[in-house]
Design a binder for these strands. Structure first.
Length: 432
DNA sequence: TCTGGGGTCCTAGGACCC
DNA sequence: TCTGGGGTCCTAGGACCC
C-alpha cells in the first residue's frame, strides 16, 4: 500500500500556530507581491473565496467578513515543513534501513511506502500518524491510503472533503471502496488531469468521473493523454502501482529564480540589478546541491497591452548562453547572464518580471575542464563557501555583489508578513 | 493601479554519427 | 530506375504538479 500525508491549509495553519486567536476564524495567505490568494482555511473557502483570485479583487469581501490576510512567510512555512517531515520519517522509521519510506513531494505533502504495515493495522496506523504530527508540530494533516500513489491521492482528497465523517483519514483497501471513491471523483480532480485534459475528456468522450476514465483502454490513453504518462495513469487507477517512491537524494535538473517586480521596471540598470540578484540566488541553490551549471537562460516578461488598453497581456522573451565550462561561482554566472540582459533590453518597454534558469547541471566534484580556459584555482570556490556561510549564519544577504544593487526599487511587496518566529532570534515569539 | 514561483516529464523533429 | 538502418543528442513546446 501507498499513502499520502497532506497538511490541511498548510500556510494558513502555520500562521495560526502563532495566532491562536485565529483558530476558528477565516484566514488566507497571499502569493509573492501580495498578488493573489494561494491558501485558504475552510472558513475562508465557505465564504466563496476561490484559489488563485487576485487579492485586489476580493479585498472588500475579505474586509466585510473579517478575514485575516497574510503575505507569504517562507521562512516560517519552510521550517514548519521540515518539522512535519522529520516527524513522519521518525514514525516510518525502518530499522532494517533497506530503503526510504518517505518521499517529500512538496512543502506540505509526503508519499509513504507502507508495505511493512499489516493490512489490518492500516487504519490505526494512519490515525496514529495524524495524531502524533499534530501533537509534535501543531499542524493538522489528512491521510489517504490505497494500493497506488494516484489512488492514495484520491483517498486523501475525499478525506479532506468531509473531515467530520472521515476524521481526515481514508483507506481504500477493497475493490468496492475503490469503485465508490472513483465514482465520487470528478475526472478533473485526478492527479495528472489538468484543466485542458478535463475539458477534452468531457467534451470529446463524455468522461466525467474517474471511474469512467478507468474503463478506457491503455492504447487510447497513449494517444489522448500524453503517451506513457496516460498509460501509467490508467494503470494506477486500476490499482497497479507503477509510480514508485522517488529517491530523496536525486538532484534537481534545472534551477530557477524568477520574480514578479514590486513595481514595473523601465530602465536597464534596475533590470540588471534584478537579474544579478536572481543569478546569485540561483547559484546559492546550485551550490547547496553541489552542482554546476552548463547553460544559463534569462527571460523577461513585458506588459504587452497597447497603451490605454485594459487587457493584461504579458509577453515573454528569453536568451540563453552555453558556458565554456560548468560553474557554480556567482560572478562567473553573472558574466554570462548580464550580457543577455543587454540583448533583451528595449528602451521604453515596461518590464513586469524577470528570471534566471540554470540548466545542464552536473556534479561539481568532477567538473570537466576546458582546454581553452585557465583551470579553476579553487579560490573562487572558497569565496563562495565563505559568502554562503555568512549569509546563512548572520542574516540574508549580509554579503552580496554590488551588481545586485543597493536601492532595489523593484523588490516585491510584502506588506502583511508575520514574523519569522522560528528561524530568526530577533523575531522570536515573546510571552510577557 | 493591482494577477506567484519553481519544478517535472514527455514528444516531435532536426542534426549528426557510424 | 535506383537512394539503408539504427542510434544519440539537442531544443522547443505542451501538458502537468503544488
Amino acid at each position: 500500500m501507498m499513502g499520502i500525508v497532506d497538511c490541511n491549509s498548510f500556510y494558513c495553519s502555520c500562521e495560526r500556530l502563532f495566532r491562536p486567536d485565529l483558530q476558528a476564524q477565516p484566514v488566507v495567505v497571499l502569493s509573492n507581491n501580495d498578488g493573489c490568494i494561494i491558501a485558504r482555511t475552510d472558513e475562508a473557502k465557505s465564504l466563496g473565496i476561490d484559489m488563485g483570485v487576485p487579492f485586489y479583487q476580493c479585498r472588500d469581501l475579505l474586509r466585510t467578513h473579517g478575514v485575516s490576510a497574510f503575505s507569504s512567510n517562507y521562512h516560517l512555512y519552510g521550517d514548519m515543513s521540515m518539522r512535519v517531515m522529520d516527524t513522519l520519517r521518525h514514525l516510518m522509521d525502518d530499522t532494517e534501513g533497506l530503503h526510504e519510506r518517505v518521499e517529500v513531494y512538496s512543502v506540505d505533502e509526503a508519499f509513504l511506502d507502507l508495505r511493512h504495515i499489516p493490512a489490518d493495522r492500516l487504519v490505526s496506523f494512519a490515525m496514529h500518524l495524524r495524531m502524533v504530527v499534530e501533537e509534535w508540530t501543531g499542524i493538522r494533516v489528512s491521510v489517504g491510503l490505497a494500493p497506488t500513489k494516484l489512488l492514495s491521492k484520491v483517498a486523501n482528497k475525499l478525506a479532506k472533503k468531509d473531515k467530520q465523517a472521515t476524521n481526515c483519514v481514508m483507506v481504500l483497501d477493497s475493490e468496492d471502496a475503490i469503485r465508490e471513491a472513483l465514482e465520487r471523483t470528478e475526472v478533473g480532480d485526478l492527479w495528472g488531469i489538468g484543466r485542458r485534459y478535463a475539458v477534452r475528456l468531457r467534451d470529446h468522450y463524455g468522461i466525467r468521473t474517474a471511474w469512467q476514465l478507468r474503463q478506457m483502454p491503455e492504447e487510447w490513453a497513449r494517444r489522448q493523454l500524453g503517451g506513457v504518462v496516460g498509460v501509467r495513469l490508467i494503470r494506477e487507477l486500476q490499482g497497479h502501482s507503477c509510480i514508485a517512491l522517488k529517491d530523496p537524494l536525486e538532484k534537481k535538473q534545472m534551477i530557477a529564480t524568477t520574480r514578479m517586480f514590486g513595481a514595473p521596471v523601465f530602465d536597464a540598470g534596475a533590470l540588471r540589478e534584478a537579474v544579478a540578484t536572481y543569478t546569485a540566488r540561483a547559484a546559492e541553490k546550485l551550490r547547496r546541491q553541489h552542482s554546476a551549471a552548463t547553460t544559463v537562460d534569462v527571460f523577461v516578461v513585458t506588459s504587452g497591452g497597447s497603451s490605454g488598453s485594459y487587457v493584461y497581456e504579458p509577453r515573454s522573451d528569453h536568451r540563453y548562453a552555453v558556458l565554456p565550462r560548468p560553474t557554480s561561482v556567482t560572478h562567473e554566472l553573472t558574466a554570462f547572464t548580464l550580457p543577455l540582459v543587454e540583448q533583451l533590453y528595449r528602451p521604453g518597454m515596461k518590464y513586469l518580471k524577470a528570471g534566471v534558469i540554470l540548466g545542464g547541471l552536473v556534479p561539481d566534484v568532477a567538473i570537466q575542464g576546458n582546454l581553452f580556459m585557465p583551470s579553476e584555482p579553487g579560490r573562487a570556490k572558497g569565496l563562495m563557501d565563505a559568502i554562503d556561510n555568512l549569509n546563512v549564519s548572520m542574516r540574508d544577504d549580509i554579503v552580496k555583489y554590488a551588481a545586485s544593487g543597493m536601492t532595489r526599487n523593484w523588490k516585491m511587496r510584502q506588506e502583511l508578513r508575520s514574523r519569522r518566529f522560528t528561524t530568526r532570534w530577533a523575531e522570536i515569539y515573546e510571552v510577557h
